[in-house]
Design a protein around this nucleic acid. Structure first.
Lengths: 139, 139
DNA sequence: TGTTGACTTCAAGTATACTTGAAGTGGTAT
DNA sequence: ATACCACTTCAAGTATACTTGAAGTCAACA
């Protein structure tokens, strides 16, 4: 089994070591062995766990819900429905965010074209564009 | 010109009135008129501003950067490049988040299939699935 | 006329997610 | 040997984004 130091994991996930210790305190990253002198020894399961933590956190899950999720995972099968409910909610949530983000990207693109044209008009001295011509466009 | 009360705006954007007052304090929602008795009068420009605030906040912009953005907008044209830089960064950021969210959705979908199959195996008494069979699948 | 309800201001409080500081230990370089 | 550096624990501090509470004002209805 390959093992990792806290520095390895910190670099692998672009997370400060303090955050990894914090996740451990919060019981969302568990069963981390120590060397004789007390240094953390991470294993493949922690890498997998962290991938899930990052995935769920990024998409909006709180630490509290992560605690619940991993508690369910450890006490499966009694909590299989809790797991499925949490994952289904999250799936829904990510799907909604994807739809919203596409709209938000379109909004930013419109603004970008508008202000880009304003800059062009300013440097060329031509007439300034009007926002009403950008409002409903897709770029 | 159509005008709106704080309650109208609160319902329109699903934001508590306290948050609208906070945005005003933070100077990202400005020039709000008052009635003789001091009640806020919102106009179309505030609705547009709030659409932008919600779009940028949702996609990760902080209040501090929103302050900067609207300050630039008010002092255009000196800040046209600052506006374009901020919008370009945000465009990039949303694009990256879209890519990541699609991966995160795939991850959640894999977990969902895995635990769904675990539930089926538990109720039918058949052999439990192994995660290795789900790791690289697309659902 | 009074009292209810919805607004107002302003200061202080809260939730979440870390981050930092102090004090200590152990392994390695000079 | 000793100095240094990276790690350790544990408690306290911080950043961000609101939220809440107290005290007051106004309009409208019984």
């Amino acid at each position: 089994m390959t093992v990792y130091t806290i520095k390895d994991i910190s670099e692998m996930f672009h997370l400060p070591a303090s955050t990894l210790r914090y996740y451990e305190d919060m019981n969302i990253l568990t069963n981390i062995r120590r060397t004789a002198s007390g240094q953390r020894i991470y294993e493949a399961k922690h890498v997998h766990r962290l991938r899930t933590i990052c995935c769920l956190k990024r998409t909006g899950l709180s630490i509290a819900k992560l605690q619940a999720f991993f508690t369910y995972e450890e006490r499966e099968p009694e909590h299989i429905d809790d797991i499925l409910n949490l994952l289904t909610e999250q799936q829904q949530h990510i799907t909604e965010q994807l739809i919203q983000f596409r709209k938000d990207l379109a909004h930013v693109n419109r603004k970008l074209h508008y202000y880009g044209d304003i800059k062009a008009a300013l440097t060329s001295g031509k007439a300034l564009p009007r926002w009403s011509n950008y409002r409903d466009k897709q770029f």
